[in-house]
Design a protein around this nucleic acid. Sequence first.
RNA 1: GGAGAGGUGGCAGAGUGGACUAUUGCACUGGUCUUGAAAACCAGAGUCGGGGUAACUCGACCGUGGGUUCGAAUCCCACCCUCUCCGCCA
Length: 429
Amino acid sequence: MLDRKFIVDNADQVRRNCADRGLTVDVERLVQLELQRRERQRDVEDLNRRANEVAKSIGKAADAAAREARKEEGRQLREQKDRAQADVDRLEAEILQIQAGIPNMSHPAAPVGADDAANRELRRGRQVPRELDFPVLDHVDLAAKLDLIDFEGGAKIAGHGFYFLKHEAVLLELALQQFAVQRLVAEGFTPVVTPDLAYTEILQGTGYIPRGPETQIYSIENTNLNLVATAEITLGGLLAGEILDAEQLPRKLCGISHCFRTEAGAAGRAARGLYRVHQFTKVEMFAFTLPDQSDAMLEHFCDLECRLFDELEIPYRVVDTATGDLGGPAYRKYDLEAWMPGRGQGGQWGEVTSTSNCTDYQARRLNIRFKHRGQKGTQFVHTLNGTAIAISRALLAILENYQQADRSVLIPAVLQPWVGCDRIRPRVT
RNA sequence: GGAGAGGUGGCAGAGUGGACUAUUGCACUGGUCUUGAAAACCAGAGUCGGGGUAACUCGACCGUGGGUUCGAAUCCCACCCUCUCCGCCA
């Protein structure tokens, strides 16, 4: 959420940013409603003050008749106050609705454009895509030949988009988690395993919208709980409502969670196999920083993502996300897109990680602040999130990039200690 | 899941309808004393919003949301959470 005072004082800038992101938002109406609300709020406070004065005077009233008169006066003042408060509440609700639809401001260097066509490639990873001089399979066919993933089984018990991992795929899932968490712990992250469910207000604080027609979120009926779409939700929510000591920032966490996404409206998009599924495991990075640390932290997160994929020896490119393709809370976002030889005709880049600087947009709604010891006042922290490893897409990229002419798949060297072999061979049945 | 007890400032902990303008202690900040520190003593100090150049001042906040009342930390209702015991269970 953007600061309301900022919106009112910088309406033009906010309107332009909404346009850059391809959104139409009635900023003028918000400004107008907010000015009305402030005026009415002053009435509420004035009536409260007068009612408080009356209440205090009752004990000192000379006689019963005077006391009754004062009571009546107090009653009327409270009634007026209630009416004024109702106006304020009504205005507040309408303002919030508009305000919630306003995205974060965008980094001045972020490419301006309507969609991912305007994304800017920043650089490529160490590994270049291999020349494959044999018929290339995609991960679905590879997994079938190697008996690694059972999509039919997943569909049978939970529907399309669910799957069973089997054999070396299971070892790879665990190996990727180990690999990511160990690297991150060495970089000063506190590792956590988070809940896979969270309250609606926590999701909203992080910028996710449960229970709408277009929601990507699974909710538990008759409760206030939802399945998380990412550990970003639980990691951000962990410190909701807290005031942090400035000296203890930045604070870096990495969380393992399962991620659940309905993928409503995703039908028809390139979604074969593991690329777009309803459940996967992810190791997520999250940071709480001082405002002047967040730009550098975003670069740090991006560097870490690059290091992980360089170590896995998977080809990738880094992309600076265009304004129209940024999520609402993001101020700037970098994606890593891995080379996926089996995707499309002759291979395509496909997103494997994403890291965002959300500045104070999430922190304002989650109410996470910091203060300097001995100084008065608080400010909102900045929050950042980044994918370390999303298992399903990393697995996809490994299978397709490491496939061999004999239909075996090599195991990346860094993962071999955990997988316990250097190659997955077709299973003899 | 059942029964009981609770949720008050950074922490501990008092407050059961009107001077709460939230007692007190610890921790914190400044000062006095001291070569310096500790101790002692004195003083200050929460968050959010509004008004004012400022000293300052007004409103809100005692788990959350409603309600009763002229007036609620205090009474009532619902929900959330914590602790103890019991049940169930990996």
